[in-house]
Simulated scan of single mutants.
Amino acid sequence: MLAVCLAAGALTVAAPGTGQADAASVCTGRPAKTVAFATGELRLYRTRHYACAIAVAKAPGARRYMSVQLQPRGGRAAVDEGRFTRQAGPVTVHALNRCVRATGNVGGATVSTGWILCR
């Protein structure tokens, strides 16, 4: 009985950190645009109603400041920022019939798109 409880406790500790990170690491929809910059890539995805963005480091490893911002025209920006090892995001906004603009930052290098993905 004690072995079962210990095993269940180990699963509880290990599962949230691994499963949630994998599930939240990608955007849904079709790839719409990728913008490369010195330290990473800003990737944008689009579905019929939503746009999604992530900023991905070219060289994952040590924790460093990363951010991604996605704003629909006339709407509020969605932002994810912090010290990450691989990527910032995903962030998603409602973008039906609206342009979006995105900004990505990995380790101090920044890229911005201007208004894109207009329909």
Rank of each mutant, 00 (worst) to 15 (best):
73 R>H: 06
80 D>H: 01
41 E>S: 09
73 R>I: 05
28 T>W: 13
25 S>G: 11
88 A>T: 00
88 A>Q: 03
17 G>Y: 05
12 T>A: 12
79 V>D: 03
55 A>G: 15
21 A>Y: 04
50 Y>I: 13
55 A>Y: 15
82 G>D: 12
34 T>Y: 06
89 G>F: 03
88 A>H: 02
35 V>S: 10
15 A>Y: 15
52 C>I: 07
14 A>T: 10
81 E>A: 13
61 G>R: 09
62 A>H: 12
89 G>P: 01
68 V>G: 06
50 Y>F: 15
68 V>I: 09
80 D>P: 00
59 A>N: 01
87 Q>D: 02
28 T>Y: 08
70 L>K: 01
44 L>S: 07
88 A>W: 10
24 A>W: 13
21 A>W: 12
44 L>I: 11
14 A>H: 11
44 L>D: 08
45 Y>L: 04
31 P>Y: 06
24 A>R: 10
28 T>R: 05
34 T>A: 09
27 C>D: 11
21 A>V: 07
32 A>S: 10
28 T>Q: 12
30 R>T: 15
44 L>F: 05
35 V>G: 04
22 D>C: 13
38 A>R: 12
20 Q>Y: 14
45 Y>H: 11
13 V>E: 12
34 T>N: 05
23 A>I: 08
82 G>N: 00
50 Y>S: 14
84 F>W: 04
52 C>E: 15
18 T>Q: 03
12 T>Q: 08
15 A>M: 14
50 Y>C: 11
17 G>F: 05
44 L>H: 09
44 L>R: 00
63 R>V: 12
43 R>M: 03
79 V>W: 02
85 T>V: 02
42 L>Y: 06
37 F>W: 14
39 T>Q: 05
24 A>T: 13
42 L>P: 00
80 D>N: 10
27 C>T: 04
29 G>V: 01
67 S>F: 05
71 Q>H: 02
16 P>Y: 10
19 G>H: 13
39 T>L: 08
51 A>N: 10
87 Q>A: 01
74 G>D: 05
46 R>V: 09
54 I>T: 15
18 T>Y: 04
54 I>P: 14
62 A>N: 13
33 K>T: 13
41 E>W: 15
56 V>K: 00
14 A>Q: 06
14 A>N: 10
81 E>W: 01
37 F>Y: 14
15 A>Q: 15
30 R>L: 08
56 V>P: 06
73 R>N: 01
58 K>V: 08
51 A>P: 12
74 G>R: 03
13 V>Y: 12
66 M>H: 08
